[in-house]
Design a protein around this nucleic acid. Sequence first.
DNA 1: ATGAAAGCGCTAACAC
DNA 2: GTGTTAGCGCTTTCAT
Lengths: 342, 342
Amino acid sequence: MNEPRKRVQMADIARLAGVSVSTVSRALAGNPQINAETRERVSQLARSLNYTINVGAQNLRLQKNQTIAVVVPYDARVRQHISDPFFLALVGALADALTDRGYDMLLSRVDAESLDSAAALVEGGKAIGLVIVGQWRHHDQLNELAARKLPLVVWGGQMPQQLYCSVGGDNVMGGLIATRHLLQSGRRRVLFAGDAQLPEVYLRREGWRQALREAGIAADESLELVVPFEAIAARTRLDERCAAGLDFDGVVTCSDLMAVQAVQALRAAGQRVPADVAVVGYDDMPIATYTEPALTTVHQPVLMAGEELVEALLALLRGETVPPRTLPVHMVTRASAPAAAA
Amino acid sequence: MNEPRKRVQMADIARLAGVSVSTVSRALAGNPQINAETRERVSQLARSLNYTINVGAQNLRLQKNQTIAVVVPYDARVRQHISDPFFLALVGALADALTDRGYDMLLSRVDAESLDSAAALVEGGKAIGLVIVGQWRHHDQLNELAARKLPLVVWGGQMPQQLYCSVGGDNVMGGLIATRHLLQSGRRRVLFAGDAQLPEVYLRREGWRQALREAGIAADESLELVVPFEAIAARTRLDERCAAGLDFDGVVTCSDLMAVQAVQALRAAGQRVPADVAVVGYDDMPIATYTEPALTTVHQPVLMAGEELVEALLALLRGETVPPRTLPVHMVTRASAPAAAA
DNA sequence: ATGAAAGCGCTAACAC
DNA sequence: GTGTTAGCGCTTTCAT
């Protein structure tokens, strides 16, 4: 299982160059007090032997480590795979941001129920810090991890009594502008689709409520619909709601995928989008351009998200105190919910 | 930069438990010759201190390593990000497959021009093997790496004189069935869109040619169009081709994204899809369902791809000889190229 | 059943 | 300038 392929190491180079291991070490490190000629000879030799330093040993000795673990929690019950486009894109952005800064990225999928196996990554020295992609229902567990002083940043919404550092889109604002957009285009009964047990969704629903208040519309609990992120399940919930009564003319969803499901459910129920019901997505993934109708959606800055998460974690690692950070979002208006009512 | 946070280690547990480090080591390893009572006491202590073994040190000592590097080459000139949905999905699938088997996944983005910085990951002991996501234009470099005896598998097409182990979809078959599908639905002038400098695309074009031969249609070089994968550039090329003459009634593309670009370019040129021109995508990513028209496309098995890549690499690591592997593909017929001509 | 000691591949005092 | 030596945190003979 574990290849015992014998690699060339410092001792070999030392022998071949007729110097000591320390000299090789210093030469390779570019230590200026080593004779330029020796240094050159050693480097040459190392290169010709395809020698690369054993980072494991180096880290052990130096007590250092340049590896950051990126953790994608998954739901063990459904064995749900990492497939949401936004999270996948975020993982890509994190890879970019970390690579740019010279860090290695350890990607692990971890059972959401036992997030402290994520902690083991740091406590076992595999990684020096944790980026957790999504807080899901695990606000409390995350707080616990933070209380254990793990260097940790989480993509998600900022909640009261939060001990960990989160970076996320401005969810309240997102829910607000999405709803406001629909109201301004003349819609009056705006359905909110999403599972408010998730902090991000909870905050977006706050924004939805706020927009309704602004417009002087009474909040109506029958317009709150619990819809999970997973596509099939989402479609089912939406179909059920359509069957229960088409008493709304606008829908605010929590992802572009969910918006697509909503459009399909509405059409299956004989509604036209946006003529009868307008639909707003969330995330503004590339897919939003390609659907029919193209999606009006709340744009989240994925690339910036990657950068900010990494910067926050590195600051934490430097011992700085890092407050949660909220990134700007904005509306992108397309066909599924035009600016003027159809 | 490198957190010197002092972690609890074996010595601490040993001291607290009043035993030696070796006993702790054995106890934690579940060595049966350790007194059950001692073992329990030590484990208890370890757990209560949140102790996790330092895997770096353990690996150094054991000469082992459970880390696989997944490398996504990128083009330094354009600093193109990991964004193609198929590759992102493949990375997700790899994460799943590796996690399931107890391996860690190191994700790195590497400049495609200097792929041997990928080699350094193995030679420096960070990882024991390499999964390279896409062969791009680097067939020769990959051969070189393989010649260096690096444990390495590559997602991509199988080419003549290939020294490395590749796992990929059946590209010839993919090009063949896509073209055949169009021909059978009555199309006669089928454009092939893709950059045949890439092995996978080269093979798909072979399939395209073969389908034309089968149908007794002479290959027409003017129906080969070099289209890059990147969306904006792809759109430009397709627009140019449409302007140069709409002398085709079907298009075979090399990704679903490219198919979407083709649809948009055709529409901009006043064509109806599929009435005037039918378009076939490639990959069958979720997006293919959501576009308008929904895409007829060649399905590639992403999840299986992740599994097969990992299995192949592990076999390689076990010292087995692993032949390149080709995974089945199949047509998925949707609206952009219906079975019967429109 | 447990401890002492050596060593995995590397770096950094400290000598000379 | 370069060599000697002592560990980084762990596992594993070899003793006892």
